[in-house]
């Protein structure tokens, strides 16, 4: 565990909590893509099946349970509790265009052709593109609330920190996971445009981000 990995995990946790609290406090999930949140719940579920097969550390287990729990809580708030505020008309990204190719790729390119490993690979690939419905929704409506942009910022920061973590681990531990790294780079690139807007628009005092 290095500082980049730890702050990356905490940044990821911050993003998840920020979104959950925003929906809870405002009693509304307007502007939030339920589809992205379902994909993230699917990502955590398929990746953390190893909770049942191997124990790594108390930290690892605890964080996995928190991530999964928060992901399902978010999906519950969007599709059940605050369903009336869900902006489904603007959440029109076709997720099958992500899930099907990603599923196929996980079968073809993996470390080991076993059920758990294929599901892990699927989750890695899917995570890299799971935010697309959310970004698509923002580009469609032309704006995002400040809190939503903070959520995206921490998600992007988590990815960037993980990249540094992998460079660190390569030099100091000889650790190298090609699948995680390639998917991580793709995922980070998807956030770059958003990062630029976040920084430039954020400083202008405007509380809206227009990605167009």
């Amino acid at each position: 565990m290095n500082i980049f990995r730890l702050t990356g995990d905490l940044s990821h946790l911050a993003a998840i909590i920020i979104l959950l609290l925003k929906i809870w406090k405002t009693r509304s999930c307007a502007g939030i893509s339920g589809k992205s949140q379902v994909l993230f719940a699917l990502v955590f579920t398929t990746r953390y099946l190893d909770l049942l097969t191997s124990f790594i550390s108390l930290y690892n287990t605890t964080m996995k349970i928190i991530y999964i729990g928060c992901a399902y809580a978010t999906v519950y708030l969007i599709y059940m509790k605050f369903k009336a505020t869900y902006d489904g008309n603007h959440d029109t990204f076709r997720v099958e265009f992500l899930v099907v190719p990603v599923g196929g790729l996980a079968f073809l390119v993996n470390h080991d052709f076993s059920p758990l490993e294929i599901l892990w690979t699927f989750s890695i690939y899917l995570e890299s593109v799971a935010i697309l419905p959310q970004l698509f929704m923002i580009s469609k409506t032309g704006e995002a609330e400040t809190i939503t942009t903070h959520y995206l910022f921490f998600l992007g920061l988590y990815r960037a920190l993980y990249l540094i973590n992998w460079i660190w681990r390569f030099y100091f531990e000889g650790f190298f996971d090609m699948i995680a790294i390639v998917a991580g780079v793709v995922q980070t690139i998807l956030y770059c445009d958003f990062f630029y807007l976040y920084v430039t628009k954020g400083e202008s005092g405007s509380n809206k981000i227009n990605p167009a």
């Binding site: 995990d9 990821h12 190893d50 080991d112 758990l116 490993e117 892990w120 993980y162 995680a180």
Partner: peptide, 10 residues
């Protein structure tokens, strides 16, 4: 399976 990778990251 034997030699299966353990993924220690989140």
């Amino acid at each position: 399976a034997e030699g299966e990778a353990v993924h220690d990251e989140l």
